[in-house]
Nucleic acid binder design. Structure first.
Length: 377
RNA sequence: UCCCCGAUAGCUCAAUGGUAGAGCGAGCGGCUGUUAACCGCUAGGUUCCUGGUUCGAGUCCAGGUCGGGGAGCCA
């Protein structure tokens, strides 16, 4: 140890319990505390395990770009990347900002997902994944959202939705098992101080097969539960997305185990998800091969799908959703020049850490959280 | 962005509209084979900001800022 605390009167970290809220305000000093230290080691261990899981199975890590010119998924607000002088913006004749004079010669943003990019490498290398930072400019003020977070997105060729679900289940179980084996000290700490019963919860996930069921059946179960007196704030109706309370009822009350919900109504899912045959799983309307993995205590932790490989169907979906087809020219090319069925999913790294540690606030499991009005350190 | 709650000493929190306190921490001294120990003394405050009501505001009112919980969006 070098040096002394120059003024003990003002040194904020004391030999006593501090609130996590307070420690967030001293993010440059909080790594010296036991909780943040444990979170940081667990984060590292999980990151290593993620790479090992994929590497051992022949996946190739693809570094997708952080700066992108396409709002690929249409998912969420984007952070703009620009070198234009904000005080003196170049204008086109009709008064709009002239982005042709910007650094990239067009509008550019921070990525919201590496998925569309990683699909291009999936078409060549079969088993690939991304693991890197992702950005959402949404004004989300919750304990589960960050403006900058890390995401894991595997993509596998010659695979359908069930292959995807199997990969997701093996992935989650591998990570939990690896973490319990390599960090028993930190995990005992979390079990004792952060969430009583954490180890039991994780072992239960490890030992229980994930329950797969169609969205349509999930809706039926929820409506039946309502008939028996279960109260939900939001209505349960086929064709609407399930609310957090519905997802948590299924995984925490009804099944008491991880649940993979599959085959959602097409109108609530993204354009690139593969259209199912009409009536799949007895659905009253058209569905797509999408899945959400729900776990007790967190709710949705993984979202994935089989991708639409048929160009004519893909084009119809792009039109239906009012998207601008020319923006997706290279994504469509993947179908024009030979393609294979493929599938993948996305997992928020910090949400995984919450799930594995019992920590409550996502801002405590990333070293320097970025959120609305928060970028101090 | 919406709903609810909050902001007072370094930290965690008290304070019927009437002199701002405690515990912990800190400094000094004492005691003690201590383990988040004990005793005494001392220092430490623009009560988040702006405005308003009032003889008088930490307290009541309005607006704002920031934080927490929940929701939406989603990962």
């Amino acid at each position: 140890m070098v040096g002394w605390v120059e003024d003990p009167e003002t040194y904020p970290i004391q030999p006593k319990a501090h609130s996590l809220e307070f420690l967030r305000e001293v993010a440059h000093l909080r790594p010296r505390t036991n909780v943040i230290g444990a979170c940081t080691r667990v984060r590292h261990t999980l990151a290593m395990a993620i790479h090992r899981f994929f590497h051992e199975r022949g996946f190739v890590w693809v570094n997708t770009p952080i700066i992108t010119a396409s709002d690929a998924e249409g998912a969420g607000e984007l952070f703009r990347v620009s070198t234009l002088d904000l005080a003196n913006l170049p204008r086109t004749p009709d008064g709009k900002v002239d982005f042709s004079q910007d650094f990239f010669g067009k509008e550019a943003f921070l990525t919201v997902s590496g998925q569309l990019n990683v699909e291009t490498y999936c078409q060549a290398l079969s088993k690939v994944y991304t693991f890197g930072p992702t950005f959402r400019a949404e004004n989300s003020n919750t304990s589960r959202h960050l403006a900058e977070f890390w995401m894991i997105e595997p993509e596998i060729a010659f695979a359908d939705l069930h292959d995807d679900a199997t990969l997701a289940e093996e992935f989650i179980k591998f990570l939990i098992d690896d973490l319990l084996t390599r960090r028993p000290d930190d995990m005992a700490f979390f079990d004792q101080r952060i969430e009583k019963g954490l180890l039991e919860r994780l072992r239960h996930v490890l030992e229980t097969p994930f329950r797969r069921l169609p969205y349509t059946e999930g809706v039926a179960i929820l409506r039946e539960a309502q008939g028996k007196g279960a109260k939900f704030e939001f209505p349960v109706e086929w064709g609407k997305d399930l609310q957090s309370e519905h997802e948590r009822y299924l995984t925490e009350q009804h099944f008491r185990q991880p649940v993979v919900l599959m085959n959602y109504p097409k109108q609530i899912k993204a354009f690139y998800m593969r259209l199912n045959d009409s009536g799949t799983d007895g659905a009253p309307g058209d569905t797509v091969a999408a899945m959400d993995v729900l776990v007790p205590g967190i709710g949705e932790i993984i979202g994935g799908s089989q991708r639409e490989e048929r160009l004519d169907v893909l084009d119809r979906r792009i039109d239906e959703m009012g998207l601008h087809k020319p923006d997706y020219w290279w994504y469509r090319d993947l179908r024009r020049y030979g393609t294979v069925p493929h599938a993948g999913f996305g997992l928020g790294f910090e949400r995984l850490i919450l799930f594995c540690t019992g920590m409550q606030n996502i801002r405590d499991v990333i070293p320097f959280p970025r959120a609305p009005k928060q970028a101090e350190f």
